[in-house]
Design a binder for these strands. Structure first.
Length: 296
DNA sequence: CCGCGTCAAGTTCAT
DNA sequence: ATGAACTTGACGCGG
């Protein structure tokens, strides 16, 4: 049993697309249900592929139910209509022991000063939890979120996050984990809020390089400090890893993993129990590359 | 049928 | 001002 498991996000580039969607203007109930069905079947294909290739960690795309949190789509009873396909995916997750998670997009900003942005974010987070609930997963199936904006006052913005967090359902609160970002909120800030809310911390190695903190600690020590925020019910500690894309603006993810750099990182986490999410453009190919390299 | 402009939504930073 | 970055390219109009 491996201590470190490695996974990828949303798309398997060897399989047909998993993300059918539609325009808001064409989002009729029948259309959304049909696209959701196709997306769930494609997700089942990915999970079977993962199991065959020994990949246990996977991030489910937020777009499974297109436009799910939008007011036009919100009332559509997709969980009932798609119960069979949701059950099939849930069975695959349970049978394969896959660790799944989700990661809402850049538009989910729980600490915005704008009430309509917060409201949309609450709906979006509830949709993520609803989907993970419908798949029969427990609180180890995490929803990874960035803290949000700063708006010129970081302390007040963290305060707003805390008060809006309290408005979330038990399901979202049991699944939510906070990630450091490359511009505003350092691992140190995230750990502060984590201590207050009792929410685990996903350490993103790449973001930490651009937006460092806790400079008296080694990277390994920071990872261990984040590890303390994970309780047994949360599942193994999760961590994000990626490389920069040379020549592209800071923050953009590389086409493929750099094996040399990953090997150095792997030495640094030796002996820790981690689920590592690889954020690279070539997805499963990089995971296979790394697993082959480590197995060799 | 194919090319390509556009798509629900926020915030920040670099040019 | 504009574009690009972030979890993910696909939809669908016009020729």
């Amino acid at each position: 049993m491996d201590m470190v498991r490695i996974g990828y996000a949303c798309v398997n580039t060897e399989l047909p697309t998993s993300s059918r969607t539609c325009r808001l203007a064409s989002a009729t109930p029948e259309r959304v249900i049909e696209l959701g069905r196709e997306n769930l079947r494609a997700l089942a294909d990915i999970l079977r592929w993962n199991e065959r290739h020994g990949i246990a960690v996977f991030r489910i795309s937020s777009g499974i139910i297109p436009l799910a949190s939008h007011s036009v789509v919100r009332g559509i009873p997709w969980a009932e209509r798609l119960a069979d396909d949701l059950g099939a995916v849930g069975d695959l997750i349970a049978a394969s022991g896959a660790r799944v998670s989700m990661h809402p997009g850049q538009y989910t900003v729980l600490n915005s000063p704008r009430p309509e942005v917060v409201s949309a974010s609450l709906f979006e987070l509830e949709y993520h939890a609803h989907l993970l609930d419908a798949l029969g997963t427990g609180p180890e199936a995490k929803i990874v979120l960035h803290l949000g904006g700063v708006y010129g006052d970081q302390a007040a913005s963290m305060e707003r996050f805390a008060s809006n967090f309290a408005r979330l359902s038990t399901s979202v609160r049991s699944r939510l984990v906070l990630e450091n970002d490359e511009k505003s909120y350092t691992a140190s800030s995230i750990l502060d809020l984590s201590a207050r809310l009792g929410v685990p911390v996903v350490f993103d190695v790449f973001h930490h390089q651009y937006n460092p903190s806790l400079k008296n600690l080694s990277t390994r020590q920071i990872i261990q400090r984040c590890g303390v925020t994970w309780q047994p019910v949360d599942g193994p500690q999760k961590l994000h890893y990626s490389d920069p894309w040379p020549g592209k603006p800071a923050g953009s993810h590389a086409q493929t993993v750099d094996l040399q750099a990953f090997a150095r990182f792997y030495d640094l986490i030796a002996g820790l129990n981690l689920d590592v999410m690889l954020e690279v453009k070539d997805k499963q190919a990089s995971v296979m590359k790394v697993m082959a390299y480590l197995g060799a």
